[in-house]
Design a binder for these strands. Sequence first.
DNA 1: CTAATATCTATAAAATCTATAGACTATTGC
DNA 2: GCAATAGTCTATAGATTTTATAGATATTAG
Lengths: 161, 161
Amino acid sequence: MISQKSKYALRALLALARIAPGETMRIAAIAARETIPKKFLEQILLELKRAGFVASRRGKHGGYLLLRSPEEIVFGDVLRLMEGPFVPLGCLSRGGHRPCTDCRDRRLCAVRRVFARVVAASDEILDGTTLSDLLSDPMGGLAGEPEEWSGAMRPISLVKM
Amino acid sequence: MISQKSKYALRALLALARIAPGETMRIAAIAARETIPKKFLEQILLELKRAGFVASRRGKHGGYLLLRSPEEIVFGDVLRLMEGPFVPLGCLSRGGHRPCTDCRDRRLCAVRRVFARVVAASDEILDGTTLSDLLSDPMGGLAGEPEEWSGAMRPISLVKM
DNA sequence: CTAATATCTATAAAATCTATAGACTATTGC
DNA sequence: GCAATAGTCTATAGATTTTATAGATATTAG
């Protein structure tokens, strides 16, 4: 499962992407509009600020704004920041850190190999989607209800994310 | 991240896939060979038994064996059993249960749409891989070290699974 | 009968996720 | 300068989930 924190971060960034460039939006306004606990959102926005996604102004008329354009903000980057050094298996993290302690030989770990493919497929989507992709096509080309989805759009998989 | 439990389950099934058909393998033997806590493994094997993946014999000379052939045991099915009703977002679970409580309109939820695509891509791999795929190709066609992986095989993505 | 082995229920220990609290700092308008 | 507004920072609490362990029970072989 993606964490609430990541979901909140993505929604907050989308909210900021909808305001006029150069304008700011207050934490309280984002929290209210996106239904996010304000104090939790504060921490999330600070993380996003430290990572260079957003900037802030303090004091009266303060608030947050995007530091990069929506075309440059990639879903995968936001998730990597919010979720920490995560892949489906610890031993798949960058540089091979966090090795399994219970896996005799990484090269022979069958589980590892399958999930490496899942990671690659997920990355292709997450690193190929930006905020602007979602802004320009708010309904994703769908006209019906989610209940009417079929085929590739149907949420069937249950792998934990 | 995939849970330890799922990883243990997959490794246990692979261990059972390697023994002769009709033979059994004791819990203690699987635990030792795959470096899995024995008592934890007991619970996992019971779940796998209830779901029809394996069968067991009690008493002396008891143990576990696969109830389906390795060609019929699909990674996705095992994960769905072990991880529960999971998708990257609660509102993507089967039948649309577990709706977001903080998302105004599911049809407009941009985050939801992106992750629906991730789910579909992951499923394609997980539901297309069986135990026998891994048995017949233990090295996955790779000759070098994981550190030498490149391109699509490199574990870059950090989406939490 | 006894030893080996799986079964079952409960609980403990640890980690993580989510959220809240409260004091502090900076900016603006008057 | 002062008050109001709004972001910053550190700590911690509460809840949930994950991981693992304990111990009593049931079954089978010999």
